[in-house]
Design a protein around this nucleic acid. Sequence first.
DNA 1: CATTGATATCGATTGATCTCGATAAGGACG
DNA 2: CGTCCTTATCGAGATCAATCGATATCAATG
Lengths: 115, 115
Amino acid sequence: MKDLPPLACCSPLAREPLDDQRSAELSRVFKALGDPVRLRILSIVAAHENGEACVCDLTAAFTLSQPTISHHLKVLKEVGLLTSERRASWVYYRLVPQTLIDLSGLLAAPEQVNR
Amino acid sequence: MKDLPPLACCSPLAREPLDDQRSAELSRVFKALGDPVRLRILSIVAAHENGEACVCDLTAAFTLSQPTISHHLKVLKEVGLLTSERRASWVYYRLVPQTLIDLSGLLAAPEQVNR
DNA sequence: CATTGATATCGATTGATCTCGATAAGGACG
DNA sequence: CGTCCTTATCGAGATCAATCGATATCAATG
């Protein structure tokens, strides 16, 4: 039995070679993910009741100051990973699923991700 | 007809709430992706003949200095996104598909990524 | 409308990162 | 073995990012 030919293309990254502008856009989103605090914030928001968490939930989960959490939330919002909604005194954050799906699809094709 | 209940969980991020250590590991990989030059390097390597490219292919694709490209390659290699192999005078880099697949699977479940 | 509680913004500081030129190290080749 | 070519490492300069305390904004409430 012969070996299968190597895949011509192992990642969607290769199908659309990134030009300068696209790589700049994408890198902003990955850079936002490139901080442990921000990753945990996303994880907490995603796992929280109703898929949303207020700032107070988040400050409670870290030993960081409230302005620092607020800063990280702003970064995540600016790149389209989170949205926010004010309800009374509280601001609730939730994931933007499509952004995560887009990134996921860029890194690997769905058929590669079998679990 | 009633609304469907909201998904309990829209991203694998939520299934395994990230602890301190895991978020630190993961953020290192995302941080490596968080630079436009490095994203383009990955893209060029992936799209290159046989899925590999030597450093000279990469320096030719940028206006950056050779030490700068070498630095970015080191960063990508340290987090497991690239491997390298020396053949004669040249060093060839290629993607590590599993790392991309793992990240992809963390951001979105395969069934979310329909294309 | 003054007060209180929740969140955002500002300015400063400290530490990390990108980039480069200079140089070292690894290999081919005459 | 000296030279040349390719790649990696080093050290420095400049820019960027994380964090904090102080303070502003916004909404509820008495």
